[in-house]
Design a binder for these strands. Structure first.
Length: 257
DNA sequence: ATGTTACCCGAAACAGAATG
DNA sequence: CATTCTGTTTCGGGTAACAT
């Protein structure tokens, strides 16, 4: 959904005060259509209290409200976008009393305590040092921190289990969607997901043939990802112009209706 | 009193082209 | 094929000046 930014984007943002009240009706409907073992993933960027260099707690208020009686919090993730600009400028680059804000919280909610999930679908390559460790062997013993590390630790699996910090740069500049929008004179959506973000959660939390819903679709990266991963998908978007542009993600180069 | 616009400030990543 | 270069992108904030 749109974040509670002080500087509004062209699609219009909601203020931090009242954000929970605004979001709750959507959350209720999402719960209604969600399978019992389904997941609800919510990407919420942070924001600042107007006029002062202190942080709003609105995204935590959202999490508290949603876990009161609608959802369980399965896990929280952080999307780290290393290519974020050093902003907000007033506090970060002018007065230099804060550092740049480069993570979004991504809340993973579920209807029951055991949503369908499998981290073997999102394994990553082993790090260089883990590769060395697997090559040279590993001495099983109790570590100083108290961890009991067994021989099993030197077994090579299919890959490394990812952390809940997702490092995904958002720098795409010349994709099919952007080029086609420019040619057609349609506005490029000003806040798109990098492909890898929805990809991670669709892989992790759904299986082929299952259905993904994005009710704040924007330029429909989620739909494109779901299509590629052979999931069924349904998206909603308020702006017909963004929806028209999103058709370019599917090779539909005809002038959108 | 309230809304609008211009201005200011700056770091890193990455795709794709060019070069070695 | 590996490296280097080029162009483009990124869910901002306050403030001053001006308009309604």
């Amino acid at each position: 959904p749109p974040f509670a930014l002080n500087r509004k984007k062209e699609y219009g943002n909601v203020n931090a005060a009242g954000y929970v009240e605004w979001l709750m009706p959507f959350a209720g409907e999402i719960r209604r259509v969600l399978r019992d073992d389904g997941s609800f993933v919510l990407d919420l960027g942070g924001t600042w209290n107007k006029g002062v260099p202190t942080r709003s707690l609105y995204h935590y208020e959202v999490a508290l409200a949603l876990t009161r009686n609608l959802f369980h919090l399965a896990q929280e993730f952080y999307w780290y976008n290393p290519s974020k600009l050093p902003s907000p400028a007033e506090w970060v680059t002018v007065r230099r009393i804060r550092v740049k804000d480069a993570v979004n919280t991504v809340w993973w909610f579920s209807k029951t305590e055991h949503p369908d999930a499998d981290n073997r679908r999102v394994l990553t390559a082993y790090s260089e040092s883990m590769e060395k460790l697997l090559e040279n062997g590993y001495k099983a013993k109790q570590r100083p921190s108290g961890w009991d590390i067994s021989e099993n630790f030197s077994r090579r699996h299919e890959g490394a289990i990812p952390p809940n910090l997702l490092r995904i740069a958002n720098t795409e500049s010349n994709g099919q969607y952007q080029r086609a929008c420019r040619e057609a004179g349609l506005k490029v959506h000003p806040a798109r997901f990098p492909y890898g973000l929805p990809e991670f959660f669709v892989r992790f939390l759904t299986r082929p043939g299952e259905t993904v819903l994005d009710c704040f679709a924007g330029s429909n990266v989620t739909g494109r990802v779901s299509e590629d991963l052979e999931r069924r998908w349904i998206v909603c978007e308020l702006s017909e112009e963004y929806l028209a542009g999103s058709r370019f993600r599917f090779g539909d180069m005809a002038a959108p209706a």
